[in-house]
């Protein structure tokens, strides 16, 4: 696994992708940070929360080539023929992508130091937001790995990952839309309005339960819960297992 991790991590810096992604992240986080500095009020947790919205761009770029490139070049056969397990391959690539995210995040740590130097406050909420950032990153990188394992085209892989993350980011909006539309339809069908609203709310609650952003929002206020982190981690494990199964399928495929 170490060899895979090393190879993948260094490969980010052997082509422009790693540098471009870090440059993009530095620029976006820098804009947020400087904007707050100009207002003489720096809330690092707010910066981190805002940066989470850019997972939708950054994660597909980072993960698009993880498996699809090997498949396109035919180098995936090396994983099947070398004395390593598929688990090593998946875990190595996943950890490499996470390490790149960590390298990107160094920017925010520097912002924290600068904030302290300017006499600002860096508190539990900021560290909570940082922890959540990594757990969400783990979930989205796992989704990216799965998207990359589905196809041999980097573009399609990036698009699939983009779509998956978009759906997750829209879960709350979708839940509230579903709530109002289902309730309205039921009311039109002469169902008692309170019962219709209760059904709509129940449905919305089920969908919102799946939203990792809602689950983790209170970290920013200094509320540290293990359950939301467990959710992100377990979902990441699930998507990594899906990736693992995809590779296994190809390994034993007749064609």
């Amino acid at each position: 696994m170490t060899a895979i991790f090393k190879r993948e991590f260094l490969s980010f810096f052997r082509n422009p992708v790693g540098y471009v992604v870090i440059a993009l992240f530095s620029f976006i986080s820098g804009v947020y940070f400087v904007n707050m500095l100009m207002n003489i009020s720096v809330d690092i947790s707010l910066e981190i929360i805002s940066l989470r919205s850019f997972f939708i761009i950054i994660v597909p770029i980072v993960t698009m080539g993880l498996f699809s490139e090997d498949r396109k070049k035919g180098t995936e056969v090396l994983y099947y023929t070398n004395p390593i397990t598929m688990f090593d391959v998946v875990a190595g690539k996943f950890l490499a992508a996470m390490s790149l995210i960590f390298v990107m995040f160094i920017n925010v740590f520097i912002h924290m130091i600068v904030t302290k130097a300017f006499g600002g406050v860096v508190g539990a909420g900021d560290f909570g937001a940082a922890i959540v950032f990594f757990f969400l990153a783990a979930l989205f990188v796992a989704i990216g790995c799965f998207a990359s394992a589905l196809t041999d085209s980097q573009i399609i892989s990036a698009l699939l990952c983009f779509l998956f993350i978009l759906v997750i980011q829209m879960l709350s909006t979708f839940a509230s839309f579903l709530n109002s539309s289902v309730s309205s339809v039921l009311i039109l069908m002469n169902v008692d309005s309170e019962k219709a609203n209760a059904f709509g709310s129940g449905l919305a609650d089920v969908i919102s339960w799946l939203d990792p952003f809602v689950k983790t929002q209170r970290f920013r206020f200094g509320v540290f819960g293990v359950a939301p982190l467990f959710f992100c981690l377990s979902m990441a494990v699930f998507f990594l297992y899906l990736t693992f199964r995809m590779l296994e399928k190809k390994r034993w495929s007749q064609r």
């Binding site: 540098y19 471009v20 870090i22 440059a23 993009l24 530095s26 620029f27 986080s29 820098g30 804009v31 940070f33 400087v34 707050m36 500095l37 100009m38 003489i40 009020s41 720096v42 809330d43 920017n107 912002h111 600068v114 904030t115 130097a117 300017f118 006499g119 600002g120 406050v121």
Partner: peptide, 29 residues
């Protein structure tokens, strides 16, 4: 989340902006 106005002078903010928005991303590009 207020920062110290005496430390966050316009010069220091400009320098910080230059480093974080221009120099670091440009160096990486």
């Amino acid at each position: 989340h207020a920062i110290d106005k005496d430390r966050a002078t316009s010069t220091s903010i400009t320098v910080t902006a230059l480093i974080f928005i221009a120099i670091i991303p440009l160096a990486l590009i």
